[in-house]
Computed example of a mutant assay.
Amino acid sequence: MSTPQDDDQLMALLAAAQQEVAEVSDTSRAAARAAFAWRTIDEDLMQLTFDSRLQDEVLVRGSVEGATVVGFQGADFSLEVERDTGELMGQVVPAAKCRVTLVTRAGDVLTVHADETGFFVLPLSADGPYRLRVQLGERVESTTWLDL
């Protein structure tokens, strides 16, 4: 049977433990962020091969209205993506049925299946940054973070 003194000691210990949890050091936070970044280490990163915003015409004359187009090279396929008003259209080349996933920085995930020509459409409800993941069979490759 517990006594009031035992209960008071227990409550003091619980309060001290709660205080320790509330005081997370910057070092612990940095370590946690670094560990979280490794969660997708099994994914290969596709290489950016084309960005329509970096074309000479855009750089000389300023912003060009219309769609933004980017291209990525994976291990054995390429990914071409075009952003236009409210949607992201793309194609995996050579054509293949695959899963394409849009991931936002907030952690929202939207997955669609590309058709037999490798074509897909993803609705965009907000601006980037976001990244795309392409899954062909067991292989998963990701783009860098995009802000189109």
Rank of each mutant, 00 (worst) to 15 (best):
D42Q: 12
K97H: 02
V81H: 07
Q91D: 00
I41K: 14
Q73F: 00
V92D: 04
T49N: 10
A67M: 02
W38I: 05
D42R: 11
T40F: 09
R83E: 02
G107H: 12
P94R: 12
E65K: 07
D84M: 10
D76G: 12
E80N: 08
G107N: 05
S52R: 07
C98I: 02
E65G: 09
R83D: 08
A35S: 07
V93Y: 00
R61C: 12
T85M: 08
V92E: 06
D42K: 13
R105T: 15
T49K: 10
D76Y: 13
A37G: 00
R53D: 13
A75V: 14
V92F: 00
E57C: 10
G90S: 01
L59Y: 04
D56P: 14
K97P: 09
Q91K: 08
R39P: 04
V100Y: 04
V81F: 09
D56L: 11
V81Q: 01
Q47R: 14
M46C: 12
T101V: 08
T40H: 13
V103E: 15
G90F: 01
G90H: 05
S78Q: 13
G62T: 11
G86N: 11
T49G: 00
V58K: 10
Q55I: 05
R61F: 15
D42G: 15
L45N: 06
K97V: 01
F77P: 02
T49S: 08
T104Y: 15
L48D: 04
T40A: 14
V69D: 06
V58F: 04
G86R: 11
V60E: 15
E87I: 04
T49H: 05
V69Y: 11
L102A: 08
D42F: 14
G107R: 04
E80F: 03
V60D: 15
E57A: 14
L45E: 13
E87W: 04
L45S: 11
A106I: 00
L48H: 09
V93E: 08
T104A: 12
E65D: 13
F77Q: 01
V100W: 05
R83F: 03
V58E: 00
K97M: 02
A106D: 15
Q47K: 13
Q47N: 08
C98R: 06
Q55T: 01
A95V: 04
Q91G: 05
R83W: 03
D42C: 12
V100G: 06
G86F: 09
G90R: 08
R105S: 15
G71T: 05
T68C: 11
R83L: 09
M46T: 03
V93A: 12
V69S: 02
V69G: 01
R83V: 00
E82M: 06
Q47A: 11
V69I: 06
R53I: 01
S63L: 14
V93W: 10
F77C: 04
E82P: 05
V64K: 03
D42L: 14
G71I: 09
L59S: 02
